[in-house]
């Protein structure tokens, strides 16, 4: 059974390692400040005892006042998973750091989010629209997308 690690278990470790990086620790997810997302993700991926080397999925949700990018990562050895979240509070040009350097599988998924949700992933090597054509007006998955 994949054990979903609750944020409370790892929050103390993360807080000592990255003071101020954790915005909020929910019941089943860790909300990370977007500028320290990369450091936290790398720590979780490589640190002994975590080894979350498998990225299940990335997605993004539009909550009007902010965009939330959701990452679920799994450790195949210990069979545990954790959900990371990062938020971007601007609607004009929301930006989140890209995790492509850590997990190659993030490549297409970040492009998809960029395409449909309009979130820019900083550091992505090939960030362009994946499904829709260049010049498509707007970002369809945003809640204020006008059809």
């Amino acid at each position: 059974m994949t054990v979903a690690i609750s944020a409370k278990e790892i929050i103390s470790q993360l807080n000592t390692k990255f003071p101020g990086a954790i915005e909020e620790a929910g019941a089943d997810s860790v909300l990370v400040k977007s500028d320290s997302l990369l450091a936290v993700a790398e720590y979780l991926k490589t640190a002994e005892g975590f080894k979350f080397e498998y990225l299940n999925y990335i997605t993004a949700v539009d909550y009007y006042s902010y965009f939330e990018v959701v990452y679920q990562i799994t450790s195949l050895e210990s069979n545990r998973s954790v959900v990371l979240k990062a938020r971007s509070y601007t609607r004009d040009n929301p930006t989140v750091p890209s995790v492509t350097g850590l997990w190659q599988g993030a490549d297409f998924q970040e492009r998809e989010i960029y395409d449909l949700m309009g979130i820019t992933f900083e550091g992505h090597p090939n960030l362009k629209r994946i499904f829709l054509w260049d010049g498509f007006p707007g970002y369809p998955l945003r809640k204020d997308f006008n059809q």
């Binding site: 299940n56 999925y57 949700v61 539009d62 599988g105 297409f108 998924q109 998955l141």
Partner: peptide, 16 residues
């Protein structure tokens, strides 16, 4: 649903 994301197996398998 407020948001429904589908983890696309085929898309992610193409990553490599």
């Amino acid at each position: 649903p407020y948001r429904c994301h589908i983890r696309p197996t085929s898309l992610i398998n193409l990553a490599a």
